[in-house]
Design a binder for these strands. Structure first.
Length: 328
DNA sequence: GACGCGGATTTCTCCTGAAG
DNA sequence: CTTCAGGAGAAATCCGCGTC
């Protein structure tokens, strides 16, 4: 592989001239610049990324942190998010490193920072008492979170999960669907806390309180979801409001297996739409968030931070309530 | 502990030549 | 003669590692 020295030597100029010709920075004659660029074009030269990173104290890499869950490959949210981040990163000459780690193990992140492999990070999931956030704050590396955090001074980008869930619940309540069961996932995840908050707030605004017997939290596996569905059918809830598409998918699966018709026998709604809900003959009432927009925005804000620009601490993106047959 | 190396960038000083 | 654009080239810098 040619180095800048090789190019300089073969053209009979100095390395600084070659560097200036490539970057366009500093004073350089038009003819010299063109001569250098033409040579590079014809003979091939590509700057050594490691050396560039050394000289600039910059890697042009960012890391995207995905949660380590066995169902990750089935979760369209993270695919879309990653795609959007990659799209924005690429457009700005950045590459991404994908890190999959459990919410409790910050070591892979620490290693990336210590090895100076990345200029910034995007956390795609946030937790209550997040162990990543204090580490990243301490290391003073630019980072953004997709999802909310309790810590002050953290740049966060999120869909308005609380607002969206409140609106969806309110819409259902105003349709005289009063006994809305709530099927929630891990309460350690901030996104789930936000959605649950929205559900409760909607009831409060109607001057009511949800029945505690209809609220099922921490449904972290199919067995627990199955049990919750079984009980809720017996309790004759008016509607099953699922905290995410994954839970909803499982709920619909169980109802179909039990021959329980949606919406005649049980109404179903999801706090998050994804294409896995298209697998059913019936359209599901759900909340639609623009994940591409979320990913792009998060990446852009991170790149701005890396460039030392001022960025907003909180960015809340809009949502859409999609009413379909499943709650008729 | 000091030093040198790896490769690119940036900054600084100095030189050359052309224009006014 | 002065001024300044255009360029050369040295040196510092980035960081980790190996050698003395």
């Amino acid at each position: 592989m040619k180095t800048i020295q090789d190019v300089a030597k073969e053209l009979g100029v100095s390395t600084s001239t070659v560097s200036r010709a490539i970057s366009g920075k500093g004073r350089i004659g038009k003819e010299t610049r063109e001569r250098v660029l033409k040579y590079i074009e014809e003979n091939g030269y590509y700057p050594n990324a490691a050396a560039q990173s050394l000289a600039q104290s910059k890697t042009n890499n960012i890391a995207i942190i995905l949660p380590e869950v066995d169902t990750l490959v089935e979760m369209p949210f993270f695919h879309t998010c990653m795609y959007a981040v990659e799209e924005m990163a690429q457009a700005n000459d950045y590459d991404i490193l994908v890190v999959i780690t459990s919410g409790k193990d910050p070591r892979p992140l620490e290693r990336l920072i210590l090895n100076r492999k990345v200029d910034g990070m995007i956390l795609t999931r946030t937790y209550e008492n997040d162990c990543f956030v204090p580490l990243l704050l301490e290391k003073k590396i630019p980072f953004v979170t997709i999802g909310q955090t309790e810590k002050e001074g953290v740049v966060q980008i999120d869909s308005d999960n609380a607002g969206a869930c409140m609106e969806l619940t309110s819409v259902l309540l105003s349709k005289r669907i009063g006994r809305i069961a709530y099927l929630g996932g891990s309460m350690e995840q901030m996104v789930n806390k936000c959605r649950y908050k929205g559900y409760l707030e909607a009831y409060r605004q109607f001057g009511k309180e949800p029945e505690s017997g209809l609220i099922y939290m921490n449904l972290v596996n199919k067995v627990l979801i199955g049990k919750a569905v079984e009980e809720l059918v017996k309790k004759k809830a008016d509607c099953m409001l699922c905290q995410d598409d994954f839970i909803c998918d499982e709920v619909l699966h169980i109802l179909a297996a039990e021959n329980i018709k949606v919406p005649e026998d049980m109404r179903v709604a999801s706090c998050h739409y994804s294409r896995i809900l298209d697998n059913y003959p019936i359209m599901i009432t759900s909340l639609k968030f623009d994940i591409m927009q979320l990913g792009r925005t998060a990446c852009k804000i991170l790149l701005d931070m890396i460039d030392g620009k001022e960025v907003p601490e909180k960015t809340l993106l809009d949502y859409e309530v999609i009413l379909k047959e499943s709650t008729k």
